[in-house]
Amino acid sequence: ASTLALIETNAEGKLEPSCLNLLDAAKQLNNPIVALFVGSKAAIGAQDLQDSVKCEGLSKILVAKDSSLDHYLPENVSPLLADLLKDEEYTHFVVSSSSVGKNILPRLGALIDNQPVCDVIKILGPTKFIRPIYAGNALATIECPQTKKLLSIRASAFPAVETGKLEGAEVAEVPFTLKDALPIEWVSANLTKTSRPELGSAKVIVTGGRAFKDKESFEKYMVPLADSLNAAIGATRAAVDNGLCDNSLQIGQTGKIVAPSLYIAVGVSGAVQHLAGMKDSGTIVAINNDPDAPIFKNADYGLEGDLFEIVPQLTEKINAAKA
């Protein structure tokens, strides 16, 4: 038995932070792990993995360098995976439950007539997994009797593997030429540029809701607060829909799912769909002028009052406390 893990990299070919959590989940499956990198920058990812991650059980790295695999186009990546998984040695396949993983895994499942288990938050054994349903209002324990277990892993539910050096992993190239290419073309990407920590891996997240009336006030109050904590900035759907910030910052059932050590919700009412994206955070702080806002029921610490007064005070006092 072995576990094949598709490791996602960014546009430069470097590891996405979520792969550290993915590898922890892979370790919990107790099989030897084979890491797979795809695309013309696959070798960069393989090197980055060897230079920066410690992971017991990871003994082999596969690189498939064909450029048709760039941008993780599922029409091309899923057939490659289907092909690799013909090897009976592989009993498990894991990928992050990211926009890339969610795009590829079901397509792979259908190609090999297999129903994946999506968004795994807990591994109970080689065939038994827990996944959230109904926006996390219920947790389903799933038994997977299929020969292959195809899993997408929710990064925020697993710790990161240690950083360090990966010793003694063998690197092998996988030959791949695309047969019967489908007529889809990747045109362009418009990536959100930020110098802040990423939502997926940040230790601290500050999130703004619809209480901010415009983009200027959102930035005026949220950026200094985030800076004081070296935090990532998140937003509710309402904030994104009102144009207060970029949609890639949305946290919730269908946005990003996060679980930082500290989560500060500013002017967030606490809709079920938002709670689904953050309720597993370590310490949750809510600042809101409505004492009945549902967010307070889900917070460890609540502060009732005008956020336009509280946030600058908080920012200043955090900076002072750190000095």
């Binding site: 941008h71 186009l73 926009s99 889809i184 990747w186 990536l191 959100t192």
Partner: peptide, 15 residues
């Protein structure tokens, strides 16, 4: 042409 929301922003594919 379809513009897709991704974790890191948006991308456009055409088919």
């Amino acid at each position: 042409s379809v513009t897709r929301e991704t974790d890191s922003g948006e991308e456009t594919v055409r088919a």
